[in-house]
Simulated scan of single mutants.
Amino acid sequence: MFNPEATISIGNPVYRRRQRFNKLMLTLSLAAVLFGLFWLFWIILTLIYKGGPALTLSLFVHDTPPPGADGGLLNAIVGSVMMSAVGTLIGTPIGVLAGTYLAEYGQRGWLAPATRFLNDVLLSAPSIVIGLFIYAVFVAQVGHYSGWAGAFALAILVIPVVVRSTDNMLMLVPNSLREAAAALGCPQWRIVTLISYRAARSGIMTGVLLAIARIAGETAPLLFTALNNQFMSLDMNTPMANLPVVIYQYAASPFADWNRLAWAGAVLITLLVLGINIAARSFFRK
């Protein structure tokens, strides 16, 4: 007769071996967590120590300066906001519609699995490849760098993130909701817009926020598309300043004042990404 008390007895060698193995794995897991948190806090504290003193009012009201002069990052901040906003506005509808097709209409056939595979490839593709692609198909054709080219590159980076989140969130919506709406005579497009979208709204919004967090610090695609601009420019058809490229250029410069602005820009992007991730988790919990 099976006796569970004898199975978990301390005197049982199998139980003792499994208990030792469990303690070992828990210890290794805790050590891995502490190791990762150590480097994370070190990076954050270094950013605050190096860039915190430069977070002054002039940082937000003056343009990037020449060497040896006082200035700020206003033009870079405005350029990053404009290109990120345009890229999000372009990429989000495409990603939502593609994810909707995969979850709601692509249950049969080969197109949906192939699209998911290609989306995963695009999701893991290096951002510099996206920048080179936009350079070849847009920048080289028009003959100059521009904010539009940067926004197009960021839009391509937004699309796979939104597609994945929309597809996953819509797949989590119970089919019983769709079946109940269909039983009442509701057409498919109304089921998607009134039932599925409402049920998956917080998850889709989380995916959009995570996509914005991803493109906020992308440097490589903007080097080949928007490049940079020393002055304030609201014309998207000209080279446009942006925080990632300014940080890249100023951090590598031999000028102390430019290095200080680079650290301040890094702090701004870090705080932005941190805030977006906190907001995304708040939406997901709801």
Rank of each mutant, 00 (worst) to 15 (best):
L268E: 03
S202D: 08
G106Y: 15
M236I: 07
F2S: 08
V137T: 15
I130G: 02
V142N: 11
K286A: 09
W189M: 10
L261C: 09
V61W: 08
M169P: 01
T238H: 14
G11R: 14
I195V: 15
A155M: 15
Y250G: 01
L132T: 06
F255M: 08
I44F: 09
L97T: 08
V245G: 03
S165W: 06
N3L: 12
S165D: 03
R198I: 06
V273M: 09
L24D: 03
A220K: 09
L34H: 13
I134V: 15
F2E: 12
W42K: 13
Q249I: 00
T64E: 05
M236G: 05
E218K: 13
Y145S: 13
R214Y: 03
T7M: 12
P13H: 10
G217M: 09
S80P: 02
G275K: 07
T7N: 01
S253E: 06
L157Y: 10
A136V: 10
L223H: 06
Y49N: 09
A279P: 00
N3G: 02
S282R: 14
V246S: 15
A140M: 07
G150F: 12
T46N: 09
D235T: 10
S233L: 06
P254Y: 03
F38C: 11
T64A: 13
A103W: 06
I10F: 13
A252H: 10
L261Q: 08
T238L: 15
L274E: 01
A125Q: 02
M232Q: 09
R198P: 05
S196N: 07
E179R: 06
H62C: 01
V139Q: 11
W39L: 06
R260K: 12
P239G: 10
T7A: 13
A76I: 00
M82Y: 02
L184R: 12
G68I: 04
D120F: 10
M232K: 03
N119R: 08
P244W: 04
Y250A: 05
S84K: 03
I8C: 05
L227R: 15
G147M: 10
G11S: 14
Y105H: 11
R116K: 15
D257W: 01
R178N: 01
T206S: 13
T88K: 10
F224P: 02
R164C: 03
L123D: 09
L57F: 14
A136E: 12
P239Y: 12
L227F: 15
Y135P: 03
S282M: 10
L24R: 12
V61G: 01
E104N: 08
A182G: 01
N75V: 00
P126A: 09
A32T: 07
Q141E: 09
S80V: 02
A32E: 08
P254G: 04
L223T: 02
S176R: 12
I247A: 08
P65T: 01
V33C: 14
V267Q: 05
L28W: 14
E104L: 08
S176N: 06
G11Y: 14
L210D: 08
S124Q: 04
L122P: 01
L272I: 08
P65N: 03
W39Q: 05
L209R: 04
I159N: 06
T46V: 00
I134Y: 14
R281W: 00
